[in-house]
Amino acid sequence: MKDRERIPFPNDREMKNQVSGIIEGGLEQQEGFLMSIHTLLKKVGFQHIFRDATEILFTLLISGLTLIGFVILTSTWVSWNDVNLYAAIFTTSPLLYGVFVYFFFIQKQTNPAFDVEMVCKYNVHVLAAVRMLAFSLLTIVLNGIALIALSVQTDIHLLFALLLSFISLFICSSMFLYIQHAPIRKLSPISVMVGWVVLNLALYSIAGAGYEAVILSIPIYVYLIIAVLTGYVYIKQVMKFLQKPKGVPLC
């Protein structure tokens, strides 16, 4: 026992140096979220990230027209004040985003230049982070406009409606992004969309007035907290695309 070499106990300075060395070595330089997005926009450029901007705008126009047509058509036989508007907002807010994901993310994998693009430094997955974010911003803006227009005509509480719309958008879009990395790739955004609508309709029809009462009884700051939380989860999911796609089963 005595022969065993004594290991000198490190002093404070040594310990500090060692610890910071280990931390620096272990933590790979991980750019912040906004910084990464900024770098991407600067390096690759908006026009290349949104190579298909005209198609996106066209799809937006078509879905906008469809929606307006739907509203005009249904408003002739349903008076809007009779419908539970909050439930409707909660259910329909993520749909536009779903359309974007379906047409402009999944399609990418069948695009002719996929193999070439996928092998580039900033590949489809990295660019997806920017695209997804832009799509959600666009959806938020458009939903916002729709809700403001609605608040002029009906007596909904605008802030409350906006919060509901954010929450459902973040929940759904986190789901959309999650399934991109999920082990079962058979799940498509369509199934998320349909699932979301069906779930809400089911809840609404089973719980009926109770559903509405529950939604209305929860104080607004709780919704605010939920909105922030779901927003955080969503950003985390977007971040996944910026990071190394380890073990992402693509083909």
Binding site: K43, V44, G45, H48, R51, V116, E117, C120, K121, Y122, N123, L127
Partner: peptide, 8 residues
């Protein structure tokens, strides 16, 4: 030019 942009 497009591929060059993706390659950074």
């Amino acid at each position: 030019m497009y591929i060059a942009a993706l390659k950074g």
